[in-house]
Each structure stands twice: as structure tokens, then as C-alpha cells.
Design a protein around this nucleic acid. Structure first.
Length: 279
DNA sequence: TAAAATGTTGGGTA
DNA sequence: ATACCCAACATTTT
């Protein structure tokens, strides 16, 4: 479920703790309980379990939609995909349905990977680049400039929405924040990437960064059956609002399918350019 | 009931 | 090589 702001929020909570939930930093992994092998992408399940034992969580960060845990040796990388979640619970609580991996930590705390759809994956690697290498730039990073975005867009001939969802193009946007960013930029989701003018590139750059920043400020979104405290769902301008009024112009929000994904936009604010579909 | 859900990947086509 | 389409993964919810 999570996109960049949700993963950022989870990383911060694991790092700093959250209310009664303690930080997992400096805690030692006493043992790892793998109740379902599916999420363990690398190395083999038993090897991963053995290697994690006695390691310590030294640093928690994020790259795109990946949670990056630097351990006292190597890195634990976690991708939550559609329905994954990470929670810290007091030791000794019985596992719940869909708790697939449980790290038993020093100080009587457990870290749990909970994932009903089981699309999520974890990796234990020496170098994070092995997994994170193909990712595009960080949209909130210092090297992602307006000029860089313009060059990136011009180098491709793709529809803008599927391109923004491509993690090798830009790391961290998902279906929600892409639609929100395009609305902020007043760009139609079917615009072709190499047709954007300079001011449109600037609007897109600001739209992407503002949507993500607001999402992070709201602790991410909590929708469907996963509630983890975020509030961004109450700030959606277009996502999930088919038939409702655009908060900017009052037109009815439309829903179309682009690249097999629901796509919400305002037909008045985000007018399609004449040559937007190419051909 | 059928459809849809914050994601990615692999296979096929042009 | 690039771009695009579809199916698949697995479960829950509306």
C-alpha cells in the first residue's frame, strides 16, 4: 500500500518510536521467526534467518518505496508492495493472521512484517545497491532539479502517468501521489512526456514535491483496511474522488484507466493538449 | 458477485 | 532498444 510518504513515516516511527511503541535502533535481533517463506526474496530462508541472528539495527532510512535498515553487518531491505505493514509490539504477544516474519528483539520488543496479500519482500544483502541500483532519483533529493526532470522527460516518449509510476524513472511515486502531483501541475495524465513545455515541467516538479511533502507532513495516507495513523486521505484533491467536485474549479472529477491503473483527474484543470496522445 | 485495491515483474507484441 | 498490453501474484472489501 505504501508510497514514499508512507514508507518515510514508517521509517521515522521505527527510528524514533511512536507513542508507546519504542524505537528499534540499537536493538539486537535475538531470533527471527519466519512463519511464511514467501516474502524472503534473498538469500534462502534459512540462510537469512541464521545471518540476521545477533545483528543490531544501526540505522533506519528509506530509498524510494524501500525501507533500508543498516544492521551491524549488512542491510535488511523491505518493500511493502500493496498490503504490507511493519509494527513494533511488546514481546510475547501471540502472532496474528498474516504476521509472516517476526524479529524478536532485545528489550522485549518484536518487529512484525504483516502482509495479507503477501506481495511484500525482504532482502538481506551486503550492499544495498544490489537491490536499489535500478531506482531512479529521489524526488525530494538535492540532485532532482527542474532541469534534470526536463531532461529526463525529453529523453523518453511515454505517457506521463505510467512514466511517473516507473520506479527506474523516479523512485517513490505510486498511484495516489502521481494523480495528486499531476493535478497540482494541471497536467493531463495522458500527456506525452516529451511534449511538456518549460513551464509545464516546472509545474510538474513542484507538483511532485509538494504532493509528497504534504503527504509526509500528514504522516501518509490511511485507506482501505490499513490504518496506521496517517491523515493524507483527507487531503486528496482527485484520488478516489470520481464524480465529486474539483476543489479548485468545481468540475466533476473523472476516473479513467491508464496503464491498468485507476486514474483520477479534473477534466477542466488538467486539459489534454491537442497532440497529447501522439500517434 | 464481480470489481477493485497505496505494486512489481515477466512475457508477448509492434 | 523502446513502448505498451496483459496476466500473474493473494487477500480482503464493497
Amino acid at each position: 500500500m505504501p508510497e514514499l510518504p508512507e514508507v518515510e513515516t514508517i521509517a521515522r516511527k521505527l527510528r524514533e518510536g511512536c507513542g508507546a511503541d519504542p524505537s528499534i535502533l540499537r536493538r539486537e535481533i535475538l531470533s527471527v521467526e519466519i512463519r511464511h517463506p514467501k516474502p524472503v526474496a534473498f538469500p534462502a530462508v534459512e540462510v537469512a534467518r541464521e545471518r540476521m541472528r545477533s545483528l543490531v539495527f544501526e540505522e533506519i532510512s528509506r530509498r524510494g518505496k524501500f525501507l533500508v535498515c543498516r544492521l551491524s553487518h549488512g542491510y535488511l531491505l523491505i518493500h511493502l508492495r500493496m498490503s504490507g505493514d511493519l509494527q513494533v509490539l511488546p514481546a510475547g504477544q501471540p502472532p496474528r493472521k498474516h504476521d509472516h516474519v517476526i524479529w524478536h528483539l532485545s528489550g522485549d520488543a518484536d518487529l512484525r512484517f504483516h502482509d495479507p496479500r503477501r506481495f511484500g519482500r525482504i532482502w538481506l544483502v551486503e550492499s544495498p545497491q544490489d537491490v536499489l541500483g535500478p531506482l531512479g532519483p529521489e524526488p525530494l533529493g538535492p540532485d532532482f532539479t527542474e532541469a534534470r526532470l526536463g531532461e529526463m522527460l525529453r529523453a523518453r516518449k511515454r505517457l506521463i502517468k505510467p512514466l511517473l509510476l516507473d520506479q527506474t524513472f523516479l523512485a517513490g511515486l505510486g498511484n495516489i501521489y502521481t494523480d495528486e502531483a499531476l493535478h497540482r501541475a494541471r497536467l493531463h495524465p495522458l500527456r506525452r512526456s516529451d511534449t511538456l513545455h518549460k513551464d509545464e515541467v516546472a509545474r510538474l516538479w513542484h507538483g511532485i514535491r509538494t504532493a509528497l511533502r504534504v503527504g509526509i507532513a500528514q504522516d501518509g495516507a490511511s485507506i482501505d483496511w490499513v490504518y496506521r495513523g496517517g491523515n493524507f486521505q483527507n487531503h486528496f484533491r482527485v484520488y478516489g474522488r470520481e464524480g465529486e467536485r474539483c476543489k479548485k474549479c468545481g468540475a466533476k472529477i473523472r476516473r479513467i484507466i491508464v496503464g491498468q491503473r485507476s486514474t483520477y483527474f479534473c477534466p477542466r484543470c488538467q486539459r489534454a493538449g491537442r497532440k497529447s496522445k501522439g500517434k
